[in-house]
Amino acid sequence: MSKVYVIAQFKAKPGKEQQLFEVLKALEPDSRAEEGCLQYILTRQIDHPSATRSDYTILFNEVWADAASWSAHGERQAIRDFFAQQVVDANGLVADAQVTAYTDEGFC
């Protein structure tokens, strides 16, 4: 089985970036303890001459042992609640979110 590399990017609503960062930061400890979690790091965008800027200024950089582990993570109540309350709900802190998954397997 191949590892799954996930980038979960969040665009905060105006004036809500710090609050969103704190809400997401609270998800780290339990997520890191999940079976199959190899890396789960919350990061913020920085200015750097070698980088372009994005409206998605907060992101999780995740590595999972396999697709089943990542799927189980998405089914956890805390993760489901976050997306329901902060992404889907019009009163949430997130203006938009993008979650992408990758593998290191080559093409045959």
Rank of each mutant, 00 (worst) to 15 (best):
S2A: 06
S2T: 10
V4L: 02
Y5P: 09
V6E: 12
I7V: 14
I7D: 07
F10R: 01
K11G: 01
A12H: 08
A12L: 11
A12K: 00
K13F: 09
P14R: 12
K16I: 00
E17D: 09
E17R: 11
Q19W: 08
L20R: 11
L20N: 05
F21I: 08
F21P: 01
L24C: 00
L24S: 04
K25W: 00
E28P: 08
P29D: 08
D30Q: 12
S31P: 03
R32F: 02
R32V: 06
A33N: 15
A33Y: 11
E34N: 08
E35H: 05
E35W: 05
G36E: 01
G36L: 02
G36R: 02
Q39P: 05
Y40G: 06
L42S: 04
L42T: 09
R44T: 14
R44C: 12
D47V: 13
D47K: 12
H48F: 07
H48P: 00
T52F: 12
R53M: 13
R53Q: 15
R53G: 12
S54M: 03
D55C: 10
D55E: 15
Y56F: 15
Y56H: 15
T57R: 13
T57K: 14
I58A: 04
I58E: 02
L59K: 04
F60E: 00
N61D: 12
N61M: 13
E62M: 02
V63M: 06
V63Y: 03
W64A: 09
W64Y: 12
W64R: 06
A67V: 09
S69G: 12
W70A: 06
W70T: 03
W70R: 04
S71W: 09
S71P: 04
G74M: 09
E75Y: 11
R76D: 09
Q77H: 14
I79G: 09
I79S: 09
D81H: 10
D81L: 13
F82I: 05
F83V: 06
F83G: 06
Q85E: 14
Q85K: 14
Q86F: 01
Q86K: 05
Q86G: 02
V87I: 14
V88P: 00
A90H: 05
A90F: 04
A90Q: 07
N91Q: 14
N91Y: 07
V94Y: 00
V94G: 00
A95H: 08
D96R: 06
A97C: 11
Q98A: 14
V99I: 15
T100S: 01
D104L: 11
E105D: 13
E105W: 08
G106V: 03
G106L: 08
F107R: 14
